[in-house]
Design a protein around this nucleic acid. Structure first.
Length: 350
DNA sequence: GTCAATTCACATGAAAGAGACCACGGTCTAGTG
DNA sequence: CTAGACCGTGGTCTCTTTCATGTGAATTGACGA
């Protein structure tokens, strides 16, 4: 294996299907087998994390940090960072560096695919070290949107991870339950229910485990010795609720203003509301609380982001002569709505 | 009645600016011998 | 003379604006039956 040219690998699979875990496991095994740590090095980077690796600069900066260099968070020209990376790699003298890029599709979407090309091209500039890339993506169409040159070399080897089905999820959950709960705490039915919830979310094992954990916490708090099905339901609610409230709370002022407008409008109107309505209401509120009014262009983007986050459901429709617009429907469950609104009111000082 | 052109109200893209943050190198200043 | 403070320049990043172009169907108006 060593000494030969290594392939790049491209892995595809939905979230929670064990891609990351498998890669990490394989990496560990490889490291174990190469007794001399000077030969091989594996670095893992999650491209989705904001503030860590969502630009070319930051990806290289992160890589440098991982291989033992130091680089400022900003201020250097990108090619400088690039050069520094090469220097450090050469100095380290490992034979092979495996770079795992998790959620690589996110990075390419945000930046462009040039950085991938640069990364591949690095091999020709390095004399002692070889770099091999493992790209992990949960978007199949990802390969279609990148540069053909990059595509062919990235997908030298491809692997696909299929979502877990309910039975497999049950197995995973059972194993985990044995490890972390005393026998008898978790019943068969509870696990089935848990698995069913997660299977609905395209077989996300992480979510299933989360659910079980939270349900355990809930049961414990109500000093119930056993986890029951209702706890799973509660846990599902809670996980969902926390996710939403977290988004609402952490959003910037302008996002909160737009969301407030949407919530207010959908209060007295069950039918869909439109971008124009939202913008008007939003402007009014801005005037009232003395905030700068953003352009409609920007507000449109903000609405689109809420759609991505799942707080609203926005569909582009054409109303014929009345133009094209988004039809927006709030997608926050009732039991969270009030709390969300309270947070907004307080944060905006209305 | 039918059909193509028109029109609306935005969506969507691209480019560029403002302001925050930061590194680097040069210059100035104060303390030291 | 030298270490540290202080500046100016040039870079990135995020959020935003400006300008430009795209778009799907209701509406309109011309046309032919």
């Amino acid at each position: 294996m060593l000494g030969q040219k290594t392939s790049n690998i491209f892995i595809y699979g939905k979230t929670g299907t064990g891609k990351t875990l498998s890669v990490q496991h394989v990496a560990d095994e490889l490291l174990k087998r190469s007794k001399d740590s000077k030969i091989l090095r594996v670095e893992y980077i999650n491209c989705k994390l904001k503030k860590v690796a969502d630009t070319e600069y930051r990806i290289f900066a992160e890589l440098i940090k991982k291989v033992g260099g130091d680089v400022p968070a900003t201020g250097l020209p990108t090619d400088q960072v690039y050069k520094r990376f090469i220097e450090i790699i050469e100095k380290n003298e490992e034979k092979l560096l495996i770079v795992v890029l998790d959620e690589i599709d996110q990075a390419v979407k945000k930046i462009n695919d040039d950085f991938l090309y640069n990364l591949m091209r690095l091999n020709s500039e390095l004399s002692k070290t070889q770099i091999s890339i493992i790209g992990i993506s949960n978007d199949v169409k990802f390969l279609e949107m990148i540069d053909p040159r990059v595509k062919s070399s990235l997908s030298e080897e491809e692997m696909i991870f299929n979502p877990y089905n309910a039975t497999q999820l049950q197995d995973i959950l059972k194993k985990r339950a044995e490890e972390s709960f005393k026998p008898g705490v978790v019943s068969e039915g509870v696990i089935a229910k848990c698995a069913a919830y997660a299977a609905r979310e395209h077989g996300d094992a992480r979510r299933a485990l989360d659910l079980l954990r939270v349900a355990g916490e809930i049961a414990e708090r109500s000093s119930n010795p056993r986890i029951e099905i209702k706890h799973i339901d509660e846990a599902n609610d809670k996980v969902e609720r926390d996710k939403i409230l977290d988004i609402v709370e952490k959003a910037t002022r302008q996002f909160q203003l737009v969301l407030y407008a949407i919530i207010s409008l959908s209060n007295n109107n069950n039918e869909g509301i439109f971008t124009g309505d939202v913008y008007n209401f939003y402007s009014e509120v801005c005037k009232k609380v003395n905030f700068e009014i953003l352009t409609q262009r920007r507000v449109g983007d903000i609405i689109a982001e809420f759609d991505m986050l799942g707080l609203i459901n926005a569909r582009v429709i054409s109303k014929g002569r009345q133009g094209r617009t988004r039809e927006i429907r709030l997608d926050i469950p009732d039991n969270v709505l009030k709390k969300s609104k309270d947070i907004l009111l307080e944060s905006l000082g209305i």
